[in-house]
Computed example of a mutant assay.
Amino acid sequence: MNDIVSILGVPFSKLTLEETTLRLAEQVQNRQDRLFHLITANPEITLASQTDELLQEIISSADLIVPDGIGIVLAARRKGQPIPERVTGYDLLLRMLEKGNELGWSFYFLGTDEITSRQAVEKINTSYPQVKIAGRHHGFFNAAEEQGILADIQRSKPDVLILAMGAPYSDKWLYKHKQELTGVKLVFGVGGSLDVLSGKVKPAPVIWKKLNLEWAHRLLFAPVAKGQKSRWRRQSALPKFVYRTMLRK
């Protein structure tokens, strides 16, 4: 397909942010019964998929995978199949909230800690008053609480389910419970985006974004949630990704 480029076996979309937004909006507006699973994949996730069989299954079953990282864009350019731009989870979330505000969509937010979750939803209520909040729950739940969360999502049937439990855990959680999430039109992970929306983490300055250095800003300034790997350890995957995609013949 002309709109797909394979990077280490991961089929990345070559759609722009605007084109991706329109495609997702069409999915929600068509009111299709089948859940549409979008993955925002960066070099770390791409590299992890080389040895993680479950992640490979999830990637092969996804409806769309977008390039959430400048490394993916550079690797595609190296292959002679350029991707026009990054499509990050944060930018997609903002675009979908704008569309949801315009069209009256409902959203369910699952992830991050309780205080951040509540503050993020309060900010969304203020900035996007026509968005319907179908529900929310923090991401630090146990097995007993999980069934209640699933029941709440099934009851509320949100148009869009936003997962903020970190990658690839968000996608693995979705894959495990995909058959139970009937009525949801669209689901995708947004990493630490709710931390930014809540004000807990400051967004990268414009100059960092223009230089494609948002990853460095997160590395230096964004806090790491309890139980997650250190950002320095996670970024150690980048040299391996560069070698596998750009240096090795």
Results as ranks from 00 to 15, higher is better:
K176T: 12
E145L: 10
L219K: 11
H177C: 01
R244W: 02
F109D: 06
V196M: 13
T21E: 13
K178Y: 10
A62I: 01
V190A: 01
L161E: 12
L247M: 15
P11W: 12
W215N: 04
L17M: 11
F109V: 05
N30D: 08
L150M: 15
P203A: 08
I45A: 04
L194N: 04
L174R: 07
P43F: 03
N42A: 02
P129N: 04
D195Q: 08
T116V: 15
I39T: 00
I70S: 06
Y243A: 13
A134V: 01
A225Y: 10
L247G: 07
A41H: 10
S156E: 14
L94E: 15
T112V: 10
R77L: 11
Y243E: 04
E18G: 00
I45W: 04
S170W: 08
I207Y: 14
S117I: 11
E98A: 09
L181K: 04
L54E: 14
V206F: 13
S106M: 00
E180F: 09
K240T: 14
L55E: 02
L174T: 03
G80E: 07
T88Q: 06
F36H: 09
L38A: 01
I124K: 12
S236D: 01
M246A: 10
P168H: 12
R155I: 01
G69W: 04
Y169K: 14
S117G: 08
R34E: 13
V190L: 04
P129D: 03
L74D: 00
L54M: 12
V187G: 00
Q119K: 14
L8Y: 07
L38T: 09
S198K: 06
E214F: 03
E53K: 12
D113E: 13
E146I: 00
M246T: 14
V196E: 15
Y128E: 09
P205S: 11
N30L: 04
G183A: 11
F12I: 00
G189H: 09
K157V: 07
E44D: 14
R86I: 06
K209T: 09
R78W: 13
T245S: 07
W208V: 12
G183V: 01
T126A: 13
N142A: 08
L163S: 05
V190T: 02
S127F: 05
L194C: 05
W208N: 06
A41G: 09
F188E: 07
M96C: 05
D195A: 12
T20H: 05
I58D: 03
Q56V: 05
Y128T: 10
F241M: 08
R231C: 02
K14Y: 01
L220T: 07
F241N: 06
I39Y: 03
N212A: 15
G139R: 00
V184W: 11
R234Y: 03
V196C: 06
Q119E: 14
L17T: 12
G199F: 10
K185N: 14
E146K: 11
N125I: 02
G71Y: 02
E122F: 08
K157M: 09
Q50K: 12
L238H: 05
D33K: 04
A216P: 00
T182W: 02
D52G: 05
D52K: 07
L150W: 09
D152I: 04
